[in-house]
Design a protein around this nucleic acid. Sequence first.
DNA 1: GTTCCACAGGAAAATATGGAGG
DNA 2: CCTCCATATTTTCCTGTGGAAC
Length: 342
Amino acid sequence: MIRDARVLRAGFVPREVEHRDAEVNHLSSVLEPITNGEPADTAIVTGPSGVGKTCVSKFVTERLREEVLDVEATYVNCWRNYSRFRTLYQILDDIGATIDIHRQSTPHDELIDRLQQYDGPRTVVILDEVDQLEDPSLIYDLHSMEQFAVICIANKEEELFSRVDDRLVSRLRSSEHVRMDKYHNEQLYDILSARTKWGLENGVITDKQLYQIADAAAGDARLAIGMLRSAASTADRENHEEITNDILLDAAEDARAQIKQKSLDSLTPHQRVVYDIVRDHGPLGPSEIHDRYTEAVDDPRTKRTVRTYLSKMAQYNLLEAEGTSRDREYSLVDSAATSPIQ
DNA sequence: GTTCCACAGGAAAATATGGAGG
DNA sequence: CCTCCATATTTTCCTGTGGAAC
């Protein structure tokens, strides 16, 4: 059933990127100066989830490293490393400059100094989910160091710009922008088809089924590949020769549930109680949510904290906020809104 | 209109957590 | 075990906004 599980895993960077030639070339041209040993400009990559932002960025830097000898590359997920310290540490760690850094003995600016003094090969720094960074001034610091070529990945450029200060906005506006849109169903089919060819035995899934997945994933390649992976692993576990329509049906739901579960798992117990309240009692305003929450737990947090929870969960796409002021209500995001497999 | 009040979300102070070194 | 220190989370205090009641 499964020939090579790697190609179905999240974060896999294929040998050839389908349907992103323009974006690949665009980003390559931004990094082009590095091939002559010159500093490269900052690039910004934007687009909704599952359009291949991370994939294209990694692909381009990997190809650059094939061409040029003296280039390093580092990838930081700013969602997981959202503080200035963590992000810097991650970068230094990747370029091998963390020896003798200890949290206690190393003041903050020491990390920046260390980066500035770094005189190894030029380094491409990919900052993924950069809009999650709590202190965006880090972008400015990196931007001003010639040694580093920065690729910023974000969902929406407005959200990125609204959080950084003016001098950085004007600099970033002039830097190269790679915008990506959702895949069309045909393109998703091609992607799935390529993964199937490398990852699965022949004939375990039909073209029609691949189109069904493409249709259900609504332009999101990560979701589509997740569905394919889930279907393949179920079929494999249950010793089927091929992927049946029943398996596919479950896999589609399973892939969505997995993505949601991942966010849900990152919530604290208190946040989870708040989430459950909104889930069970429909659209509610912050006051009523807090009242019910106070009833439900032993040591309730304050209203302000619960408001922070709510906006965090809205960011994670677990909840939806409607209204801007007194009329605000929170409700569960309707995951059934995306079309299921039929 | 005007007033009122719940809300959003920033800033900063206060408190809890966690990990290293004794 | 405990202490210390940086970091993480929570609380307190706050300003600005806009819907709702008057």
